[in-house]
Amino acid sequence: MKSISRRSLLRLALGGGILAGGAVIYKQTESVGLDKWMRWMLRGQTARLNPPARVALASVASYDDDVLSAIRTLWRDANAPDLANARVVLKPNLVDSIPERPCYTMPQVTEALIQFLRDEIQVKALVVAEGMTFRRDPHAILIETGYREMLERQRVEFVDLNYDDLVKIPLRGGYAKMDSLFMARTVAEADALISIPKLKTHHWTKISGSIKNLFGIVPGAKYGFPKNTLHMHGIDAFLAELLDSLPTPKRFALVDGIVGLQGDGPLFGAPVPSGALIGGQDFLAVDATAARLMGFDPTTIEILAFMAWAGLGQIDVNRIQVRGAALNELKRNYELAPTL
């Protein structure tokens, strides 16, 4: 019997190794499909070649300080998009109003941003919009949070995204096994969306930042209160879909971290005076910076790590240029939310 040569043996071993590796990858990716997994992975690798993301920090000790000036500087430092003549939707986090729980974006931040965009950037039109999570009617929350008074003062319309006209948008990513999603027309047809979240911890996603805040743009009339139907697709997967499929051509995130919320978030946590505003166009880079500011390593936060792996933005500290105030000076160690 002819003996097998050393070269053939090596070839066989190599071929076997490739096959075994392929089988492992196939098995690991079976639930999402190898093609999608490859697409996400390749985009994630390609993202490493993109220019670094720019994130700006501003130090603002209190809501009584000059928030407008801070936003003006932050906007420049963050290399924000040109919104002159744009139709802009401002989306604060108005999840609920609970006494002594800083769970929502303070109206002073939204008001200063309205003034800046309208008077200095000269946007074409702007509205403040939100689809509340727990209460079906927004009016009590708008009154209790001070938003109604502020909006009347600024003569800005509030749009309830839970009951807006519906637009069906295609979902590009394939993360959540959904082909399309109903979205509020106000958002779908805007030129720009500005996510204005509260800096806080969250019992499902560890932190709640500019990406988690996007849950408010899907209509509660369809997906229920608290839009749990979408949680059933996996929170991480669904948020990746939302971020990947946002229909607005331009976007920006401005995080209200002047007073953040730690512990039992998103509602019942305790206040943390962080004295920070965080801004940027790359929502993932903004949330990663927010996580660092709260004392967390963003690469250990599953939702952020997954989106970075899939190429939806940057979380690597070496791929984010932080401008403005020093992160180390604003950093606080937030207490995590208890997990469910």
Partner: peptide
């Protein structure tokens, strides 16, 4: 009853 199929039940629906 749930808001949509394949979800938990909620008070309003």
């Amino acid at each position: 009853w749930s808001w949509q199929p394949n979800d938990a039940a909620w008070i309003f629906p």
